[in-house]
Design a binder for these strands. Structure first.
Lengths: 188, 188
DNA sequence: GAGAGTAGTAATCGACTGATAACATGTCAA
DNA sequence: TTGACATGTTATCAGTCGATTACTACTCTC
């Protein structure tokens, strides 16, 4: 009764998925490599062996998540004349995968403490901002507004105000969520 | 040659200031009580004695920062008919105190991992959102937009894209910052 | 000036964590 | 089949961290 062996590439992929879940909750400093190992059901030293260090894994996770976000935007954009409203739909599918955006938020927050992570976080941020403009051809101000609304939704998701298993809803939460229903964004 | 003794209240105040700086950089999990103690030039056990635990100190910091943010908005609002533009000026003074907003961002991010912190973070968020509406009488959607732009600026500050000692400016950073110059917000 | 209360420190501890090293086990080609 | 390589684990360690305890020293009052 031995474990199924996977190739290093397959196991790494699996570990990145586990790391997304773990880092989304605890952030970089608040997550142990053992947390991740347990989620993926491998031993903790193997995590280190495959990625070299906890920081290297975190950076890979950030880049991976950034890629998935960009892919979601590309998928949501029609071949011609994409509007921000199209990308908003793509963003909602990202919110549904509830760990992706919070893990990126933790990346941004950790940028303050570590230069190496900072460089990666800023690059991801710039890539996403640039992609939004490329796909839709909007003005910088409109693209920035789009991103800022996404930022707000990301924070709300991190605080479990929106998303699956939300906390008990306070009046201000209901009002804020409701303000999206009429505004075209965050269509549940 | 002994240290100047302060009252517990004075020392606590000093420690909260130190904790704002430390937590703004490292976040909750990434900051040690010894980091804070060194900043305030007291011993690490004394930090624990005064606040009971690291978590209790973090929560106090979040609430303190939330209070200062609310105060900045009140100060920036004229007695009658305050506009969001007035509060935007208040926000800029908060950005200048460069640790306040990043520490709050870390509070929001940590909300995901700890229920107790989560409750406090959500309460602070709701208080600020509610205050913005009270002061200006805007619609929920406008207040939400105001907050979301603040969120974006907070993230940019955490990543050192804006603020003192910014990193080398990439083209997208210049463009995004420039988009504020023409949009009425973030007037440096 | 003595005693009591408050401010603050040194010493220490148990638990945790990332990383290393040594070892074991499965797989595939020749 | 065998041996070489890749997958994965166990054991372990050195460093770190939050917290507790016991102690010291200052200050104020009566």
């Amino acid at each position: 009764m031995t474990r199924t062996r996977l190739t290093a590439a397959e196991r790494s992929e699996q570990l990145i998925d586990a790391a997304i879940v773990a880092f989304a909750k605890g952030g970089y400093a608040g997550t142990t490599t053992d947390d991740i190992a347990r989620l993926a059901e491998v031993s903790q030293p193997y995590v280190i062996r495959l990625f070299g260090s906890k920081k290297a894994l975190f950076i890979m996770v950030i880049e991976h998540v950034s890629g998935r976000i960009q892919q979601a935007f590309r998928d949501a954009a029609p071949a011609e004349g994409a509007q921000l409203a199209d990308l908003a739909n793509g963003f909602d599918t990202l919110l549904a995968r509830r760990h992706l955006l919070p893990v990126l938020l933790h990346g941004f927050a950790a940028a303050n403490a570590d230069d190496e992570i900072g460089r990666v976080a800023r690059a991801c941020y710039g890539d996403i901002y640039t992609l939004v403009q490329e796909l839709t051809g909007t003005t910088p101000a409109e693209a920035r507004d789009f991103i800022s609304t996404g930022m707000l939704l990301t924070v709300l998701a991190s605080m479990r105000v929106i998303g699956p298993e939300p906390v008990a809803q306070e009046p201000w939460m209901i009002q804020m969520i409701d303000s999206f229903e009429h505004g075209g964004r965050y269509k549940h």
